[in-house]
């Protein structure tokens, strides 16, 4: 069993939890993920590690409540435990050698994963700009955390209720046109966001790393559920990713394949609403 040490609601749909997981904490690197299973009946769900503290033996997960499993997890509190937590899985993010200045872009709950990337790069002595995008002011997360690990933070909201109005892609293009020389862009968020960021950087020839979130079952290279097409080839996100070259990923296919259980997720949310009503 893996104990929950802390729980904090970051916004009504996003929760942050700290788990006791000493083995994982010791090895976790930015970009890697874990698989959790809440209880005996639970499914195996992948989540990228938001933070790890090797000394305390803890890892932090930040998740959006989308379906049955994240609802179940969110129903637990500090002091409770989940049956399984396995990791760190996948390959750590590799920032190209010699990179001096990078831009980390997070979209929505994707900021939870963009944060450890920014932190790792910052600690490695790189100049780091962060562009974090949200739909509106109410769902902004990790602002203070980002400020501590970057040189410049650009917060954008789609409706302009906080920070700059507009999408992260606009902010990125403005920065580039204003003369920022990025050696690499790391983009993490909804699939369309990663796709459009990659379109922008392609024009400027900037190396772009995206972190993919396909459906997985075992997460250890066995089921093939997480296969994605990258550069025209089948790649397995669990053992060969989850990071890939944004200029080579077939985002449309991934978006489509991730929708396979969408109806079921919607049913789960509906049932939850019915419970509350």
């Amino acid at each position: 069993m893996f104990q929950i040490l802390e729980k904090k609601e970051l916004n009504p749909n996003v929760t942050r939890m700290v788990f006791e997981a000493p083995f994982i904490a010791k090895k976790a690197k930015a970009g890697q993920f874990v698989i959790f299973r809440v209880d005996e009946e639970g499914e195996r769900v992948p989540l990228t590690i938001a933070d790890a503290d090797a000394e305390k033996g803890t890892i932090t997960l930040i998740f959006q409540i989308v379906g049955r499993s994240t609802m179940k997890l969110n129903a637990l509190n500090a002091g409770d435990a989940i049956s399984d937590l396995v990791g760190p899985l996948g390959l750590a993010t590799e920032i190209p050698e010699g990179a001096k200045k990078i831009c980390v872009i997070g979209g929505g709950v994707g900021c939870a994963i963009a944060y450890p990337q920014a932190k790792a790069a910052h600690l490695a002595g790189l100049e780091v700009d962060v562009i974090a995008g949200f739909r509106n002011k109410d769902i902004v997360i990790l602002e203070d955390e980002f400020r501590k690990v970057c040189d410049e933070l650009i917060l954008c909201t789609d409706d302009g209720s906080y920070g700059v109005k507009g999408f992260v892609t606009n902010a990125l293009e403005e920065r580039i046109q204003a003369g920022c020389q990025y050696d690499c862009v790391i983009a993490i968020g909804p699939i369309p966001m990663m796709k459009f960021v990659s379109e922008v950087t392609r024009k400027y020839g900037i190396k772009t790393i995206v972190s993919l979130n396909p459906i997985m079952v075992d997460g250890t290279g066995m089921c093939g559920g997480c296969r994605v097409t990258v550069g025209g080839k089948i790649r397995y996100a669990c053992v060969e990713g989850p990071d890939f070259d944004g200029h080579e990923v077939d985002f449309d296919e991934l978006m489509h394949r991730n929708g396979v259980f969408k109806e079921r997720e919607a049913e789960c949310r509906m049932m939850k609403l019915a419970d509350k009503a």
């Binding site: 079952v217 066995m222 089921c223 093939g224 559920g225 296969r227 097409t229 089948i234 077939d250 296919e253 489509h256 394949r257 929708g259 396979v260």
Partner: peptide, 12 residues
């Protein structure tokens, strides 16, 4: 067509 929804490995 192997990336279509409804195509999976026997392992999965």
């Amino acid at each position: 067509g192997e990336a279509l929804v409804g195509v999976c490995s026997a392992n999965e």
